[in-house]
Amino acid sequence: MTFSISINGTKHDVDVADDTPLLWVLRDVLGMTGTKYGCGIAQCGACTVHVDGNPLRSCLLPVGTIGSRAVTTIEGIGATEAGAKVQKAWLDREVIQCGYCQSGQIMSAAALLAANPHPDDADIDAAMAGNICRCGTYVRIREAIKSAAGEA
């Protein structure tokens, strides 16, 4: 089947089965490899993208369910105010180590800040607990979110 999906403001036509998760459409069909595969069962958050601004796990998101909703990926999040703030804070605080999970971390953090410009620790926990970082960058992720929110 052919689907027309809007990714980072650009229309893309893809010809795949409708149950194909968006993750693999992005990575293997469109070559947008910033979104990562980590677990395939929505346990790690490495594949997080925004659909109409909501953070979703693209590994379990069938492409056929997206319709006209706008998809934003790590490649495009810098164009949003919250995304740009988060990316800057991530670099200012030197959050990133191996970096593999960080596309997903940044997407989750950007969605948090867009919805809640001044999150407290509990808000950060709730928004970020679905993203695993095996390098253990959580301490700096928390600092960076606070920094991006202008609170540290």
Binding site: G34, Y37, E75, Q87, V95, I96, S103
Partner: peptide
Amino acid sequence: LKRSDTPNKSDGKTIYGIDAM
């Protein structure tokens, strides 16, 4: 000092082995 590798890891540009095309 700031790391050399982190800017590209913050916006999806870094190519890991799994991203090779």
